[in-house]
Design a binder for these strands. Structure first.
Lengths: 246, 246
DNA sequence: CGTATGCTTGAATCACGTCAACTGATGTGG
DNA sequence: CCACATCAGTTGACGTGATTCAAGCATACG
């Protein structure tokens, strides 16, 4: 499997790393792994000795709900995200890490990470930054669930995911394979599955986007952004060319 | 002002640091500052060259709402919290940092922090951990706003704050000076001020707690925990004596 | 085939928001 | 000392957005 590791590219959140730092950490990923949809990648409350880099697919973080049975989605990760990097300093997670789609991940052992970081504080600071952007996204999820109404909430979530996914892989056709069920979307933004269905119909009838078979197709990005009141500054996107918030 | 700095104690979140690490970082705090209620301590989108340690009072993080005028509370910080430590790697914030009560903070320059951390990766990892606990709290806020109904939400927020405040300073009488207005509480958990008022009445009539003049008084902690479905594991409390999630 | 899973729609219910009026405490100026 | 303004809290009436329950439909799969 190591042949794929050499081809690893600096996609999405990984672009926070400087190229030389990326070259340093890349060899530490010793193996990749493919996990099938719906599997629990890392369970909560268990001591972890490794962290995962998401290469392909979508991963979610679930917290079992205190009130009812169905767990709640508190975060979604896209390719380029350093999943459960926070397990490196914290050692245990407070949520389950589950595969939404079939995913491929690269593993890094905390031992190897320590060897690397103990001699390189600059790299550590950049990894730290990556978890801080995660934190900013978490704050935005609280904001979204706290202030927005259903239509805006769903639109906002979809635009966020589209924007983050584009950082990993450009999608000129505006199509994104999310594979989230409608109740999943509801779980992520605090709505019932039924209501998500109605909201998606409204977005479809407004000509904004369609969502079918787990595939999001954005038809009118401008209008969708407007409905979503989307301001991407909380994503701290690295500047490619031109101004950005980072 | 330096006389107070020598007396700084390892309260709240600071207890994540080992005592020797705490002794190392303590001298870097060169001055304390008292800021009056409602002042903006650090504005968003401005490059910061320092971070703040909250010594006394309560600080909030506000995001101006896209939809209406009133900004939204996305986080609350209690004494011992290293406010905007995330500004150290990220340099800019995506939210305003505002004083809820009158607060005293200690300032640390990022230059000094760098000098200290470049020779001490273990300390850096612990500071990193502190921001990760912040992240876990953010996730919980998203969860609260996404899954809970009004009564549970308010109860949950109040218990969280009480628990975190107790880490900083024990409150055997069950009284906590929050100084949040009822609309503030609503803003934090996605409810209108009017509805918060009704919920607080319900909690009062149930004998759980009272909230008057910005002071929370917990009368029946057990019942309040039950209503709030409160499980503190996401706070990663350091173990004092006995088992805990950390 | 039948069963499971996810989507779709309608009808009834309810939790919460909005609006508006009133209270009570605090503060300010004449 | 009183008149007045201000601000947070309080309560009622009303409207509505979202949940829940239920039934029906489509597709995939054994």
């Amino acid at each position: 499997m190591t042949e794929t590791l050499d081809q690893l590219d600096q996609i999405g959140m990984l672009r926070i790393l400087t190229p030389d730092h990326w070259e340093m950490i890349k060899p530490c990923f010793k193996s990749t792994q493919t996990v099938c949809s719906k599997a629990v990648v890392n369970p909560r409350r268990v001591r972890l000795d490794h962290s995962l880099l998401l290469l392909d697919g979508i991963i979610g973080r679930r917290v079992p709900s205190e009130t009812d049975q169905t767990p709640h989605l508190v975060a979604l990760q896209v390719p380029g995200d350093f999943i459960d990097l926070h397990a490196y300093p914290l050692k245990k997670l407070d949520h389950d890490v589950v595969a939404i789609t079939q995913v491929t991940v690269a593993m890094i052992r905390h031992d190897d990470l320590s060897k690397l970081l103990d001699n390189n504080c600059a790299l550590m600071r950049q990894l730290w930054s990556m978890t801080l952007v995660d934190g900013a996204i978490h704050r935005h999820w609280a904001l979204r669930n706290g202030t927005m109404r259903a239509l805006q909430r769903v639109a906002n979530l979809l635009v966020e995911l589209a924007t983050r996914l584009e950082q990993a892989k450009p999608a000129p056709d505006g199509r994104f394979r999310l594979e989230l069920t409608q109740p999943d979307i509801g779980s992520a933004c605090g709505l019932s599955g039924v209501h998500v269905n109605r909201v998606l119909r409204d977005l479809r009838e407004a000509g904004c986007c369609t969502y079918k078979n787990g595939i999001l197709t954005i038809l009118d990005r401008k209008q969708l952004n407007r409905i979503a009141c989307f301001d991407p500054s909380y994503l701290y996107l690295p500047e490619r060319s031109g101004p950005s918030g980072f």
